[in-house]
Simulated scan of single mutants.
Amino acid sequence: MKLIECPRDAMQGLVHFVPTDLKIRYLNALLQVGFDTLDFGSFVSSKAIPQMRDTADVLAGLHLFKTKTKLLAIVANVRGAEQAIAYEQINYVGFPLSVSETFQQRNTNKSIEQAFAELAEIQNLCLRSKKELVVYLSMGFGNPYGDPYSPDLIGEFTARLSQIGINIVAPSDTVGTSTPESIGHLFRRLIPAFPQIEFGAHLHARPGEAPDKVRAAVRAGVQRVDGALRGFGGCPMAADALTGNLPTEEIIDTLVSEKIPVAINQEAFQKALTLSAGVF
């Protein structure tokens, strides 16, 4: 099981700017826990996401010589991808592709078809630089705009992504609309249909909902789950202020209850959990 820790997703909507040195301390603590991947920052417009304007400076302060955790950075266009791939330390480039036309425009100021065209360019950049492109299918469990949605639509998007060589796809519950039933149904449909793709679950939840959502995903065969310590963050577009990322501590407890091995350093995890209170 791969645990993906997402402090970038947790921080990006904060009103107050988290000082660069504090970001570095927090991320260095997370790098000692044993997560498979750390979604640490983004190369996007500082006007759109001012919290992430110091990503390059943060990266320079990370202690990567004592960790096996890989780094992921989010981009929203080709320009951002060009910035990200310039850093040898970054392993994964993440791109948010929405199955909702309305949200694609709101989130990246482009249409779905324009996003697919950029994705093809970004994939070529990643292949040349030996990076792995991760595509997040936002609004992957429905949307509040009345735009078309169905598991078939997710399958169609996944097929197009597979055609350009994308190997990691994460349906994302952007506004917390998923249920354990819809999670299980979607992944039981996708995983057998696309055996060449590694599917992740990027889910959001209200307090108390995370364990059932995690259980549904892993029982359907998901081997890659995103979370954030204490459930901080979530999409700024969420209508419900209580809808946040899945708390990593609840993900771990649920995996343990499902008899799924979790290889993390508990002492380092507790130190990072304590530090997170000061960050947020």
Rank of each mutant, 00 (worst) to 15 (best):
Q105V: 14
L190W: 05
K110S: 08
A170T: 15
R188M: 13
F103V: 10
G146C: 11
T179F: 05
E209M: 06
P180D: 09
Y145A: 12
V135R: 09
Q114D: 10
R215H: 06
A210I: 07
E88S: 10
P144I: 14
N107Y: 02
V135Q: 14
T179I: 12
F199P: 07
I183N: 01
Y149N: 00
A210V: 06
A120V: 13
A159H: 11
G200N: 08
R188A: 15
R128S: 00
Q114C: 01
S100E: 12
T102H: 03
I191R: 03
K110D: 05
G208V: 15
S111E: 09
T174R: 00
S162A: 15
Q196K: 07
S172D: 03
N143K: 01
P171N: 04
G165K: 02
P96R: 03
I191K: 07
T179Q: 07
I90Y: 00
G184R: 02
P171W: 04
Q104F: 09
G155M: 10
L190Q: 09
G155A: 12
G94L: 03
A216F: 10
E181D: 09
R189H: 06
Y136H: 06
L133E: 14
V175A: 11
E132R: 04
Q196A: 14
S98K: 05
D147T: 00
H185G: 08
S100N: 06
L190S: 09
H185I: 13
P171G: 14
E113H: 09
S150N: 00
L127S: 02
S150H: 02
A115T: 06
T158S: 13
P192Q: 04
F103C: 04
L203D: 09
Q123M: 04
K131P: 01
F187H: 04
L137S: 05
V218P: 07
